[in-house]
């Protein structure tokens, strides 16, 4: 491929995503957790570059923002690629429970658990 140079690949970030930046959609949260699915494990040979790396680094649940730091690419790139992988069934993405779309009682229960968790550190 013409974009492969001796020391690695030299491309602008959004070339990796075909120019898409996910603008206009509610973006996947920075802290959303990406996990490879059994199907993703089976078809991982199909993916290249950053998509393959996302699969390799999400055997344990790993946040979008962590993947961006590990792969050293902008967060927007990981978002687009992770969304593609999800659409193909290769990863599952767990979004954080937002205060806005959660019933007060559920949210209060979550906060109690977080509080308990922090106090137990």
């Amino acid at each position: 491929m013409s974009d492969v140079m001796a020391g690695g690949r030299i491309v602008r970030p959004y070339t990796m995503t075909g120019g898409r930046s996910g603008v206009g959609l509610v973006p996947i949260a920075l802290e959303a957790l990406v996990t490879v699915t059994p199907a993703g494990m089976r078809m991982r040979g199909r993916f290249r570059w950053e998509s393959a790396e996302i699969l390799a680094h999400s055997r344990k649940e790993t946040a979008i923002v962590e993947l961006a730091a590990i792969l050293d690419v902008p967060v927007g790139v990981v978002r687009v690629l992770a969304a593609d992988l999800r659409d193909q069934g290769a990863v599952a993405i767990t979004e954080p429970p937002g205060a806005t779309d959660t019933a007060d009682s559920d949210y209060a229960e979550l906060l109690h658990k977080v509080l308990d968790g922090i106090k137990a550190l």
């Binding site: 802290e31 767990t94 979550l110």
Partner: peptide, 10 residues
């Protein structure tokens, strides 16, 4: 998220 067995991010 709480329906899953996995982790919930906050």
């Amino acid at each position: 998220p709480s329906d899953r067995t996995g982790l919930t991010p906050v």
